[in-house]
């Protein structure tokens, strides 16, 4: 018996001033609604400066 049921399908962890890590069961869609194929763990940009939207390319370091 599991007494701590997991009640979420994906985990989102963010670093202040840097990226957002997404892990688990998720679908990523671009602004037109098309699915962007990904693995089950990705890093999305939160700083607005990446050159490969929507993913973090470490440009946040230059801020």
């Amino acid at each position: 018996m599991e007494n701590t049921p997991v009640n979420y399908v994906a985990e989102f962890t963010f670093k202040p001033g840097a990226s957002l890590r997404v892990k688990g069961d998720f679908i990523l869609k671009d602004s037109r609604g098309n699915i962007i194929p990904t693995g089950d763990s990705i890093k999305l940009c939160r700083c607005g400066k990446t050159k490969s939207q929507p993913f973090c390319d470490h440009s946040h370091r230059l801020l």
Partner: peptide, 12 residues
């Protein structure tokens, strides 16, 4: 709903 994958939609 819980069984569905989360959906991340990028807004333009």
């Amino acid at each position: 709903q819980t069984l569905q994958p989360a959906e991340i939609q990028i807004m333009k």
